[in-house]
């Protein structure tokens, strides 16, 4: 899933300082699961905004709403009335959702309430780790199912580097060295030979360096415009 981190409230406050009628808009998918963009956070942020305005002696109206996925035209169209009644929207969806909102409602100021950080998942309650870099050219088949592109600080293809010690990465002691993990995994699978082969420079054509990327599923394309 897409993991996003809450923006510091001071930054949010600053962005919204000139607006009187604000909607805090949650997204019911990835960011709900990572506890930064769900209905709970909507309520929390709205409460903060209201209290903050009260303390500064400003009058504001803060609405609270949420939709299943802000990255779908239809789902954000469902809340059109609420949105168009506001001066500004604080979208706490990932960057995708924020942009969908901005495109759908060009007259309304849409602000991001979270920092979209990575694709990953919770490894334990409250702890999320990056797991995929969206490189568009998956090599997991040769690395024991563990991704060095997203999980090695230097995205090494021929790791581990000399900074791998006690299973940890030199860049951060709390980060496991993924190449050490790959080594152990391949050892378990009796595939250590794989690591003797030099992996050639990766083809990044499909990666983030070539954005914006696009995917077309010819068999599903319909003529009808959905936006």
């Amino acid at each position: 899933m897409i993991v996003a981190a809450s923006k510091p409230f001071q930054e949010i406050k600053q962005m919204l300082s000139e607006f009187r009628k604000i909607c805090v808009l949650g997204c019911g998918s990835c960011v709900t699961i990572c506890h930064t963009g769900g209905e709970k956070q909507v309520a929390e942020l709205a409460a903060q905004l209201r209290l903050s305005a009260k303390l500064e002696g400003r009058q504001i109206e803060v609405k609270e709403d949420s939709t299943l996925r802000q990255c779908e035209w239809e789902f954000i169209d469902n809340i059109r009335e609420v949105i168009e009644d506001c001066d500004a929207v604080l979208s706490i969806a990932c960057g995708v959702g924020v942009q969908y909102m901005a495109e759908k409602f060009p007259k309304i100021r849409i602000f991001p309430g979270v920092n979209t950080t990575f694709m990953g998942g919770p490894t334990e309650q409250g702890i999320f780790w990056e797991r995929c870099a969206g490189c568009g050219n998956c090599i997991l088949a040769t690395t024991g199912g563990l991704c060095p592109v997203s999980r090695c600080a230097k995205s090494l293809m021929n790791g581990p580097c000399g900074g791998s010690q006690n299973g940890r990465c030199e860049v951060s002691q709390e980060t496991p060295c993924v190449w050490n993990q790959i080594y152990d995994q391949l050892d378990t699978q009796q595939l250590l030979k794989t690591m003797e082969t030099i992996v050639p420079p990766k083809d990044w054509t499909t990666g983030a360096e070539n954005h914006p990327r696009k995917m077309v599923l010819e068999h599903l394309v319909v003529k009808k415009q959905i936006n």
Binding site: N158, P160, C161, G162, G163, S164, Q165, N166, G167, C177, N180, Y183, D184, M195, E196, I198
Partner: peptide
């Protein structure tokens, strides 16, 4: 460069070979 003291130790000579 090669670091004989990094982990996994058994892989270090292999990496040199690479």
């Amino acid at each position: 460069a090669e670091n004989p003291f990094a982990d996994p130790f058994k892989f270090r000579a292999v990496r040199l070979a690479k």
